[in-house]
Design a protein around this nucleic acid. Structure first.
Lengths: 142, 142
DNA sequence: TATATTCACTTGCTTTTCACAAGTAAGATG
DNA sequence: CATCTTACTTGTGAAAAGCAAGTGAATATA
């Protein structure tokens, strides 16, 4: 399979750059799974409530890796497993996710009120927590 | 045309709700045009750098209205024009857009550095500005 | 007032992406 | 060794995106 060299941007606007990397119905949910649910493997992502299709998941993971948001490393105790981990760039998406969660929680009837209340109570504290958890468990690569 | 009653959510997660409303390659760009470029009409949206197709624009505007993010009102001085305006819910997306812009600006090579620097300098001030501009020029409807 | 132009879309068609079901290969387990 | 698990790939139909052209009402222009 031939991989494209450099998908040219539709515009130079930073929002457009974000949208081109994350603007679909799955990418941010995968990142959420890594960030708040601690998912690491293909199988764990598949088990999420939203029910992503296997081929779409493979495609999105590959794109997230290509964009430098996620890295992979083989699991040391099980040769079949590949661990997907957030890079520093990926962790920096925490504020984006937070604002999206708070917006939906404010304007829609949604579940997961535990997470929402935690974010509402102290956004910065929540973000610090995410960063700390990730800094601890892995050496972050760029 | 029959409109669907209530597109059931894939999950109750607030992030999923956001993604189902905004997770595509155009919706947030339309909101950006309203929020920071002051676009109001179909034609103005079409003129954006990214080059949205006419049928996609019509579809996205309709969905944004359906989600209560945008409202319409006829232009008082030109009967052909329809003005699209952000609702309070739409304006509340300002922090989401801001974080997405700052993230891309930090990790990608993008343009529009003027806007970025303004956001970096004082996020809260920028957000207050957006809110003030919108509160002034229209009565916000829910 | 007739004509051209603008505005906000539709329509039709092709291409791309999504979704579902099934299959496969490498590694682990009993 | 046989079976199971994990991380995918492949095939197919359906849905959505993208492009070009067209429509109809309102407005500007000659």
């Amino acid at each position: 399979m031939l991989k494209k060299r450099k998908a040219k941007r539709r515009s130079g606007c930073p929002l457009n750059a974000s949208v081109e990397m994350l603007g679909d119905r799955w990418s941010l949910l995968i990142i959420r799974d890594m960030m708040v649910r601690g998912s690491r493997t293909y199988k764990e992502f598949l088990e999420s409530d939203e029910g992503i299709a296997t081929n779409i998941l493979a495609d999105r993971l590959q794109k997230l890796v290509a964009h430098g948001i996620v890295t992979t490393e083989p699991d040391s105790s099980d040769g079949r497993k590949l661990n997907y981990l957030l890079t520093a760039k990926g962790i920096d998406l925490a504020p984006v996710l937070t604002e999206m969660v708070l917006w939906a929680a404010a304007h829609e009837d949604t579940g997961n009120q535990a997470l929402v209340r935690q974010m509402q109570a102290d956004k910065e504290k929540f973000l610090a927590g995410v960063r700390r958890r990730w800094a601890k468990s892995h050496s972050l690569r760029t």
